[in-house]
Amino acid sequence: MLFIGFALVVAVALALLISSDAGTLVGLTQQQTGQLVPLLVLLIVFAGGAFARRRRASELIGNLALWAGLFGIAMVGYTYRDDLNGIAARVFGELMPGTAIVDAERGTATFRRGRDGHFQIDGRINGAEVTMIFDTGASAMVLTSADARKAGIDTASLRFNIPVSTANGTGRAASVLLDRIEIGSIVRERVRAFVAEAEALDTSLLGMSFLETLSRYAVSSNSLELTD
């Protein structure tokens, strides 16, 4: 019973800490409710003692110390929440380098550099999931033939008459217009792109025809930030 009571108090306190615009709670302001929390703690302690007199004093003190420690950790975590969010984002980015870390308020999508030194970008093209490499040296987005087919493009009807340079050497590509591109929360429509002929390209490229539509993009240390 004592543990349940403390759990409820801690939950209420955390809710007040996390929500800075919590407003009123059962007719009390946030400040008044916060002042009430210590009184509730004392009430639960005395009530617990009344209903569990057989408990040893050392056990009760140990329980109080445990909950005080947990509450202290929660307070420290809230105080340094911005730093912890940054650490969590970096860990998440290392584990899943192609997945965007989205900040909806700032309109950004952030990616971590992969172990191969490239920035892998997992996006959606015409609704299909496509993995691309960030490449400012590409004048336009370039899709592999396989990714183009995934995006619903009929590669058999394309004219591969544009010479392009790729990591595999010189090849040819066809010009297309992509209906929709989604990178994190960033969405663009009708973006110019190339489709490389079969086996001319290993991975699709996120090039300048998309990047130039952004308000900014920046590489710092091991992170890439795209801003809508």
Rank of each mutant, 00 (worst) to 15 (best):
V45D: 00
G49D: 05
G49E: 08
A50D: 05
R53P: 15
R53Q: 14
E59F: 10
L60C: 11
I61R: 10
I61V: 13
L64M: 10
L66M: 15
A68Q: 06
A68V: 15
G69K: 14
L70G: 15
F71I: 11
F71R: 15
F71N: 15
A74H: 12
T79I: 09
Y80E: 13
R81S: 01
D82V: 09
G86L: 07
A89F: 08
A89G: 15
A89I: 07
A89Q: 09
R90T: 14
F92L: 14
E94Y: 12
L95A: 10
M96K: 14
P97N: 00
A100R: 07
A100W: 06
E105P: 15
R106Y: 04
R106L: 11
R106N: 12
G107E: 04
A109Y: 05
A109Q: 13
H118P: 02
R124W: 03
R124A: 14
I125M: 04
I125L: 09
N126A: 06
N126W: 02
G127E: 01
G127C: 00
E129L: 02
E129N: 13
V130N: 06
V130E: 03
T131F: 11
T131E: 12
I133D: 13
T136C: 10
T136F: 01
A138S: 11
S139V: 05
V142R: 01
T144P: 00
S145L: 11
A146M: 09
R149D: 13
K150A: 08
G152R: 01
T155R: 05
T155I: 13
A156S: 14
I162L: 08
I162Q: 11
S165E: 13
A167N: 04
G169D: 00
T170Y: 14
G171L: 13
R172K: 12
A173S: 12
V176H: 02
L177I: 11
